[in-house]
Write a protein that binds this DNA or RNA. Structure first.
Lengths: 228, 228
DNA sequence: ATTGTAATTTTGTACTACAAATCAATATTG
DNA sequence: CAATATTGATTTGTAGTACAAAATTACAAT
């Protein structure tokens, strides 16, 4: 037997925590769908034998996540949550761990490589034209600014037609840049034989999915280099 | 001018919402880090000129996300949130929209293709051995069960050494299976020229990143077919 | 110097009260 | 009769009080 195990901190779980878990399980088990009406605060408090206060603190959490909505006198109804709402609220680089930030940094690279499939599946001539407008507006003299990088890459995500995917990436951008700027402070970023945005567009026009992934990998080489 | 715009619902934003936003902005602006101690509930209520009740409902949300922790008499301190905690709580297939579920389904495919880079970068002989044990335990007679699929693919995610990435995928699995099982009800899933887990392992042993991505794409072909 | 004890502070929970919103039912008016 | 106005009741949102539990601090005792 492991004596360290037996000294694990006792779960200091509050009534509010338990009510929250209880309610989420209740919603799932009963297969409640958006629009379904829910019992009132008083009824819940009575049924669970806790104060209305505790119930409201739990409901407040679910309201924040968009799982429920409530209006005066109308009672509460199930709602359709934004799947990324909870994520958005914790994206504060000062409180996330270094490991998590590194993980997020890598995830963005994985997404950029993996998206090629859907990019080629769904790209349209109009998309290509828009990409060309974007790179035309970006001076070829200097390195693209962060804003120009974001504009180009976000357009690529857009082209996959996957809104959640696009929004996910947009949320990760600030953390990604945070990690990269920390790195740049201490390291010289060197890129030879670089692939530029215009090269990526050319491959989108006349290359293959595999060509694109290889090119994207080269384009992202400075970032991949960090992950060692 | 667009008259529909002017009929947008008035923001029915509660005091609790405003206090929550206020606090998160406060934390970010002051670059609070995990462990930093925070003002007490009474002080916040007084400063913001709202009842302690409202403050507690807002704090309850932040506690759920793991942004803060509080213990009796000890006051509140900043904490290190689980970046996926908020996501986890809304992963209820009954309340997420069809579009979102489809997006999630596609995102998993993107991750599987995109992960190859880090898989090859970090795989070890021990990992390969473990993969071979997994496929050896899986009968080659029948199609892999969902559990067997999960076991194999989760091991692949593990091998990238990216814990957030692995956890993210584990969270998506139930939704992914939900979407796929809905599809299977109405459609015959046919797979010829299929790539099996053992083929993927062989490529991991002696192939290239590009070989692996192409193989994985074939392995996932039945799923890609859905996304049309 | 360590242990025990009491005072105090802060969060957790409960309860009451009331304003605002709105639903339901009834009354009023054209 | 139909449409509108009024009234009453109900439910959420906010405020405030009260007290238990926990833990910090200070002090007392051995």
């Amino acid at each position: 037997m492991n004596s360290k195990q037996s000294l694990t901190p006792l779960d200091n779980i509050s009534l509010t925590d338990r009510v929250e878990n209880n309610l989420r399980a209740y919603f799932l088990e009963n297969a409640f769908k958006p629009g379904d009406s829910l019992p009132g605060e008083n009824e819940i408090a009575e049924k669970l034998n806790v104060s209305r206060n505790v119930v409201r603190e739990a409901l407040s959490r679910l309201r924040m996540l968009g799982i429920i909505e409530s209006r005066t006198r109308r009672g509460m109804i199930m709602a359709r949550p934004d799947i990324l709402g909870g994520l958005e609220r914790v994206l504060n680089p000062f409180i996330l761990g270094k490991d998590t930030l590194k993980d997020i940094f890598e995830m963005r690279l994985i997404l950029e490589i993996g998206m090629a499939e859907f990019l080629f599946l769904r790209k349209t001539d109009k998309d290509i034209e828009e990409l060309e407008v974007i790179i035309k507006n970006q001076s070829s003299i200097h390195e693209p600014t962060i804003e120009e990088e974001i504009e180009f890459h976000t357009k690529l995500y857009d082209m996959t037609g996957n809104e959640t995917f696009t929004r996910f990436q947009v949320l990760l951008i600030p953390l990604f840049n945070h990690v990269f700027s920390l790195y740049k402070k201490n390291n010289k970023v060197h890129q030879s034989n670089h692939i530029y945005h215009k090269d990526l567009v050319n491959i989108l026009k006349s290359g293959t999915v595999e060509d694109f992934r290889l090119a994207m990998k080269k384009h992202l080489a400075p970032y991949f280099k960090i992950t060692d």
